[in-house]
Design a protein around this nucleic acid. Sequence first.
DNA 1: CCCCTCCTCTAACGGTGTTAGAGACGCTAC
DNA 2: GTAGCGTCTCTAACACCGTTAGAGGAGGGG
Lengths: 216, 216
Amino acid sequence: MALTRDDVVDAAVDLLAEVGLEGLSLRRLARELGVSAPTLYWHVADKRTLLDHVAERLLVDQWQVTPLAPGEDWAEWLRERATRQYRALVTHRDAARVLAGNRPTEAAMPAVEQVLGTLVGAGFAPTEAFAAIQAVGNLVIGSALEYQAERERDAGHHGDPAAHDPVRFPQHAALAAVLADRPGHGADHDALFRHGLDLMIAGLRVQQAGAVARTG
Amino acid sequence: MALTRDDVVDAAVDLLAEVGLEGLSLRRLARELGVSAPTLYWHVADKRTLLDHVAERLLVDQWQVTPLAPGEDWAEWLRERATRQYRALVTHRDAARVLAGNRPTEAAMPAVEQVLGTLVGAGFAPTEAFAAIQAVGNLVIGSALEYQAERERDAGHHGDPAAHDPVRFPQHAALAAVLADRPGHGADHDALFRHGLDLMIAGLRVQQAGAVARTG
DNA sequence: CCCCTCCTCTAACGGTGTTAGAGACGCTAC
DNA sequence: GTAGCGTCTCTAACACCGTTAGAGGAGGGG
């Protein structure tokens, strides 16, 4: 059986998980597939577009349409969706970086359409709903990026954190003191993301309350 | 006069503005400086650390300490700071991408210390203040990244936006209809960022109100 | 005069994405 | 049966990349 583009993308996803974005070269990918490098160009236009396909593959599970249940809180529903997206990014090596340089894909449209509809149904104006989606999306990708960047950094060498002059930086020192009493003992990025998402959703709640009050 | 590391970083910033991150190679940079490529390794350990220095240079103006004026609203003050950071990223080509892959730099600490102090002064717990900084930062970088990614995409070819089946995607169609009546006619990323930042700050306001109520 | 440090050089290694162009396999039409 | 054609893969090569080894010139201090 001849090679398929799906085969190439699958192998790229696997290789990405194994060696990271830096290690993902077309030659290496070709070797993994038992094929010569230029062969890949028959299946894929570009490395850039190959990565587009990879990004789509990484997120496609997460674009399933799960409508708001009757009586369900739209904000909780949105939080759940955003969290899933974050998880999908964070659990695949370098997924955030791959997604960041990406063209948006057609395949995400039904999911966006659904969120748009749900928010409009909750009382948001269409432009507000769109801005909300964008804002949450940007927060998600920014958080995932930061998380994975730090993980990669610490893979090299991690200097002792929070060992700074408590006179010049009393706030940092106070923070470090509080954090030292915690089980995890370090910055828990998942909790940090959750906190940020909570803030955003709280903001959406007040905006929605205002919109509902205006329109009746 | 011999070459300085500052000279190298300066030239790298200029070259980045001119040719973008893809075009920024050590050989090209050396040529710009009238020097051979390996020479750069005397001034800089690595391309990676060179980019660290570039990122620091791009943001350093924006780390000036401007304390909260007496009677000034902490939320407005924070919004102003975040907006400046966003501006700094967006006005330098590929700045967001450079910053994304970066180690955090020592030079940012006084600024972080100051924001931390201001938020704690406003009633936030230290961990809350830290999470807030992180959240706003992630939103800023995510937004800047998205903005610049789209700008780069459209530099190539931009297919007509929002030309989609209004039956399958009624919400998109409605949104496009509203947007068509606007002066800019396209998605205004600055406004989108401002909207997202407003949401986050609204969330911070309710959190702060809660914290103040708890602690008296 | 010698040494030493600063700074720059040439040459080269092993990699990268990508293109040109030839050729093998299998199906279809005559 | 064979000629043609689309599909898929190959080898060879181009122009670049980050990076290292190691030599050497310039200038000051002993």
